[in-house]
């Protein structure tokens, strides 16, 4: 498919997926168990994203590099109750610094 077809199809599917979450009847998500699953859902997906963004490489291979040090720095900053922006910039700086020194 052409690049524009690809961009538009991917965007259309993404939007339909987003909207579907709003069209599901509310009764589907009632009850303590379902509610708990839904509450934990973003926790699971965000944790998965952290793992993949930290270790993931080409074709799903796993690597330890400067990103791990950056996430460790982020956790340290979070423990120190740093602001979101400080956490993100601090982590990027750690990764950039390590790479400038020739690691990761």
């Amino acid at each position: 498919m052409s690049s524009w077809t690809l961009v538009l199809v991917a965007s259309g599917l993404a939007y339909v997926t987003k909207l579907a979450g709003y069209l599901v009847p509310e009764s589907w998500v009632e009850g303590p168990r379902r509610s708990r699953v839904l509450t934990l859902l973003p926790v699971a997906l965000l944790a998965g994203l952290v793992a993949i963004q930290t270790f993931g490489g080409d074709g799903g291979s796993l690597h330890v590099d400067a990103r791990l040090a950056a996430v460790a720095a982020a956790i340290l900053l979070l423990l120190l109750r740093a602001n979101f922006l400080v956490v993100v910039i601090g982590a990027a700086a750690v990764a950039a610094g390590l790479r400038a020194l020739g690691w990761g």
Binding site: Q53, A66, A70, A91
Partner: peptide, 22 residues
Amino acid sequence: PQRWGLDAAAAAAFTALLWPRL
């Protein structure tokens, strides 16, 4: 972009979003 640590910034952002929910 890796030279600027932008890939690590993405991982850190997800970490920061996850943090308060633990």
